[in-house]
Simulated scan of single mutants.
Amino acid sequence: MHTILLCGGSGQRLWPLSGSIRSKMFLPLLPAPGGGTESMIGRVCRQLGQAGLDESLLLVAHQEQIALTRRYTGGKYPVTGEPCKRGTFTAAALGALHLLAAGKAQPEDIICIAPADMFADDDFFGHFHQFEAILATSQAELLLLGTRPAYPSEQYGYIVPAQADAGAYAPVLTFAEKPDTATALELMREQALWNCGVFALRLGFLLEHLERLGLPSELAALTAQYPDLPVRSFDNEVAERSTRAVVVRHEGEWSDLGSWDTLADRLPSQVIGEGGLWGECGNSQLINELEVPLHVIGVPGIVAIAGPDGILIASRKEANLIKEILAENKQRRQDCP
């Protein structure tokens, strides 16, 4: 099996430390084994290596992030660059055609597509070893990995299995993309799983979707068309169109750490950088990349984040609104004559 690790992302949800070039996966904030810190992408590659899954690993990154990708993975793995960001489906197709053109994979081979920006326990990656056998046994055209929701999140997609306790895998009944809280609660009652963004399939099945969309199955031709392609997600183009999909349930830990609230729970210290938290500052997090000190006094439940691109002071639960604010500011600038 070949693993394609997608290293995309807009870099907005963890602003001001993340941006269009330094996505969240490159932030060296997570505690590393034996001390020190590591990035999300470094952690995922380390875990793939520990699970014996990195011998046929390919990383797909935006061309402007190739150097960062190599830096945070120690230059151990091949990296192919997207000319521009065109969504998870297009990035996965680029990676698959790269393997095909290099003679490293054939249409009948199984490929696993996974995001580089996630936080999971080691057992999560142990499931990958089952993918080929489950695809063969189930006769499914697509396999997904899901995990039991910890709370009714509006930030994740959901997979509804046809059976709640089907053993190693279950047929997929339907999908729900980032529902509101009430719908998420109902989905949890239906034993729905968070969609972890991990897919396994035959490379040839992906080629069939390229043909359906009128896209070339040659690497050079797809690369030439890249700037003119629309943004396409793998969920929309492949998963939600599949009539024979199965899901494997992960019972352990998983998160995409897509907000300051979820990331703060994984950090080694409440204060990182110059400054401090004083007085009643329970459940607050301070990260300062600047040389000037940042102090918070008597304010619980917030994040105080300072970096070269700006400063964010927000309630932990509402910090995700920064993505909408940045989008509005960008639109406003574009609208100005």
Rank of each mutant, 00 (worst) to 15 (best):
A168D: 10
A168K: 04
A168W: 00
V172E: 04
L173T: 01
T174I: 00
T174E: 12
T174A: 13
A176V: 15
E177S: 13
E177Q: 13
P179T: 02
P179V: 01
P179W: 01
D180T: 05
T181Q: 14
T181W: 06
A182L: 14
A182P: 04
T183C: 12
L185V: 08
L185I: 06
E186K: 11
L187I: 02
L187W: 01
M188A: 05
M188L: 06
M188F: 05
R189H: 12
Q191V: 06
L193M: 12
W194A: 05
N195T: 00
C196I: 02
G197Q: 03
V198M: 04
V198Y: 01
F199R: 06
F199H: 08
A200D: 04
A200Q: 03
L201Y: 01
R202Q: 12
R202L: 04
G204R: 06
F205N: 15
L207T: 07
L207M: 13
H209C: 11
G214I: 02
G214E: 05
L215Q: 12
L215E: 11
P216D: 07
P216S: 12
L219P: 04
L219A: 08
A220M: 01
A220D: 14
A220Q: 12
A221R: 13
T223N: 02
A224W: 06
A224Y: 07
A224C: 07
Q225G: 03
Y226D: 00
Y226F: 14
Y226N: 03
P227N: 11
D228T: 15
P230E: 09
